[in-house]
Design a protein around this nucleic acid. Sequence first.
DNA 1: CCCGCCATTTACTCAGACAAATTGCCACAT
DNA 2: ATGTGGCAATTTGTCTGAGTAAATGGCGGG
Lengths: 246, 246
Amino acid sequence: MSPRSGPARRAGGKALRLHGSIARTIGIAIVSGRHRPGDLLGGEISSSARFAVSRTAYREAVRILAAKGLVNARPKVGTRISPRSEWHLLDPEVLAWMFESEPDPELLNSLFELRRVVESAAAGIAARRRTPAHLRDLRGALDAMAAHTLATEAGRQADMDFHGTLLRATENPFIVSLTKGVSAAIGASTVFKQRKGPLDRDPMPEHRRVYQAVAARDARRAERAMSELIVLARRDTPSSRARRRR
Amino acid sequence: MSPRSGPARRAGGKALRLHGSIARTIGIAIVSGRHRPGDLLGGEISSSARFAVSRTAYREAVRILAAKGLVNARPKVGTRISPRSEWHLLDPEVLAWMFESEPDPELLNSLFELRRVVESAAAGIAARRRTPAHLRDLRGALDAMAAHTLATEAGRQADMDFHGTLLRATENPFIVSLTKGVSAAIGASTVFKQRKGPLDRDPMPEHRRVYQAVAARDARRAERAMSELIVLARRDTPSSRARRRR
DNA sequence: CCCGCCATTTACTCAGACAAATTGCCACAT
DNA sequence: ATGTGGCAATTTGTCTGAGTAAATGGCGGG
């Protein structure tokens, strides 16, 4: 079995270089649990041989993984997978890699929990700071969502645009930097939903309520509406039936 | 002027390798604004010569920066600094680099805004999920803070431990993954505070109120107490007097 | 039983060459 | 004049092989 197959492409669609695709392969193996924290990754010579690439390319891949907190390389010790508490879980690529394989339901709940916290607050902030331009973009995304539905790629993109625009409207760079990660989560989990047959519930009403609150500059109502939206989205996601912790 | 000076050490204290210290040098130049988005970074041959290292080491440094969303390298085009919206601002290292030079006051406000949102909610969640062990750790950090005060390194470490333990008590891996970044922000901004003379206000009361609410499993009160704590911390930070946006 | 030296293993750095990709120019046809 | 195809130059990407530096674990001496 060859570890890689053809020119891998990232979510954005851009072709990945050799080092990038190797980082992706190993990264997925790590976040999916196929390699566990504390495990060693094998020497550079043997690993690069296993991937049929030069040590240079393999080392650059390791650098990428180390930059995302997934591994830790030291002479004489080897390249060890870091404990999960070290992982940069909100890194867009790490998040995307998690959705490449069926993600742990527990982890999915945690992600929705954080989204509920951050995006609700973001909706409230956006209600206060939004410009007419933001409002126009939100309306555009909403229209596109309604036109294409979440069953199409264009519809899912519009959904992501809606959430992305809302985060951008906060004018808070740190909140904006979560956009890519949130989009990855939305895109992937929406695909999950559709997998078990088409969605029966119409997701538009709660989206419209968020928009209306933001348009009315009603921060409190925007927060509540977004909180509700995310609770509903979690309910629609199949693995949400898994046990809650404790 | 030589671009690097001696064996650079990251916040954690571990000695940095060549590629790591170069990534740090360039990374600081980027987040501090000395290089601006859209700028090119110069060819690999000339850049590696400027740092007096091999192309290999320089390229690995670029891979690190690219993994954090700071730059984007393409053949024939060069290595271009990405727009700030692409930066992984919550990456612990990026955050630490931002505090290496005086950070933009506007950005500092944004960071406090996000901390207020996330840490308040985290306090509420922690109030529901905390175990006796978490409580013991919180108490330990509190005692250490009181004993050493924020004027000492040990006291600042205790402060960071308090916030870290609280985030850990949420049992939410995504929230936990923010710990390192939050610590970097706390450590650096606390040093700023002290710079203009010793702090006159005692930060212990609001910390104790958070602890008591978490101990009492009172989520609502924990949220409010943490929100208050962060507002006070922002007030103590010198640049907080800078204009709010718009 | 503890402490410091030393050998070994591993990642790290270097140098030089060649390959691949992307751009922009330029000739050519329309 | 304008669009279109391919060619050439530039830059990052990949490969090879060699040598360096760091961290560990054992060994010997205290």
